[in-house]
Design a protein around this nucleic acid. Structure first.
Lengths: 224, 224
DNA sequence: AGAAGAACGAACTAACCAGTACGTTCTTCC
DNA sequence: GGAAGAACGTACTGGTTAGTTCGTTCTTCT
């Protein structure tokens, strides 16, 4: 499914080998997400697999390459989510709300993704930059958004001074925050942002925010 | 200024000692923010100070306690910012916008703070929880917000189903995102979120977002 | 069946790194 | 001026951890 896997598959690997690699990737994803790059222990990953450390180096050559494979896999997953939203038949407002909700749902159900993105940012995205696949495939998320916004502006319901990247940023910011800052927020304010009881209201809130921001006039009440 | 420092000061330390400790804290803040907790090297911190590793352990006893002191210091700084906003004479909308802008400005000018918060979240806030000072002092940020929102609701300009913590979350989410996800965003979309040219428009955007969301009716266009 | 190579395992190594032992030099106060 | 303790420096250690060595066992194909 992901590049790294296919390589070995092509050169005649067994189904068992593929399962081993996926096993390693699953465990590594959890370990890196939970402890950061430097904090993750290859021995610990090995121990939680049904394989040994030898196999990790056999298939992935180094801790860094293993980490990169993990990154590529989680980024591949979110692409699939974005592609899954059928936008065309919705009004601009509804479409925006749907996209926001889908992003919110993905992030809250894939905490490892957000944790890995945080980790990657701490390291100034130096690993991410090494993966042409991730860079190439993920820009396309924006084109969908561009279409929707353009339609909304043309219909006169959206303000025209906010572009697709801005909207993507607003949606991501809110959806990421729930997962990324969950623990400090809970520690200080004693509210678990991923509490299922809050989910519906927060899903609605992210939609409200995006739609309200886009439909607001430039000269908003309270602007300084 | 921070607890750890005063302790030693009280028991008769020289001005030089205080400078040494601050020197260590400055360097440690940068090192932890840049590399994470596990990734940070005590030797590296020592090398960039005008002191030696011995002194780090002399004043801070362990890597973990040093990290905690760093955390406490950066959290003390943001408290000062929040206290600095004079709210009373502004309208609810203006007050919200001011608070949002102040948070945005603080976060964009104190990247180490956001990085440390990210790191702390990766470790499930286990260090933060050990600091009663941080936990106690930071909840108060919410009471200010509560007053403003209550006023807005009473005046009939704000919707009543969004509470202070929600608003704090919206503001933080946007302001944090710029710094926290700067590098992956730049790598994928080639837009530096901290580019000075974007600052004014983003500062306005965060105000627009908060005000628009709070002033929107519940039955928003586009709600499903 | 048996050869070739893929898949696997246990035990090791070299480097690295948090923390320390042990000593010296300042500072303060009488 | 000298005693007491704070402030400092060098050189080390012990545990940890990424990566390896050298071997065995499966799988596949003819």
């Amino acid at each position: 499914m992901v590049g790294e896997l296919r390589e070995v598959q092509d050169s005649g690997s067994t189904a068992r080998a593929v399962r081993t690699m996926e096993d390693i990737l699953d465990v590594a994803t959890a370990e890196f997400a939970a402890n950061g790059y430097a904090g993750a222990r290859v021995d610990e990953i090995a121990a939680r697999t049904r394989t040994t450390k030898r196999m990790i180096y056999y298939y992935f050559t180094s801790k860094e390459r293993l980490y990169l494979s993990v990154l590529e896999r989680v980024y591949a997953q979110i692409r699939d989510v974005e592609r899954g939203v059928r936008i065309e038949e919705l009004s601009p407002c509804e479409a925006l709300r749907k996209l926001a909700e889908a992003t919110y749902d993905h992030h809250t159900t894939h905490q490892e993704f957000i944790q890995l993105v945080s980790i990657e940012n701490i390291h100034r995205a130096e690993h991410l930059r090494q993966s042409p696949t991730i860079l190439r495939e993920n820009v396309t998320a924006i084109t969908v958004l561009e279409g929707v916004i353009e339609r909304g502006v043309r219909e006169g319901v959206f303000r025209s001074d906010i572009d697709a990247l801005d909207v993507h940023m607003i949606i991501s910011a809110f959806a990421c925050f729930h997962v990324a800052n969950r623990h400090t927020f809970a520690a200080i304010f004693d509210r678990d942002l991923l509490n299922p009881a809050l989910q519906d209201s927060h899903r609605r809130l992210i939609g409200d925010m995006v739609v309200a921001t886009l439909t607001a006039q430039d000269g908003n009440p309270g602007s300084s």
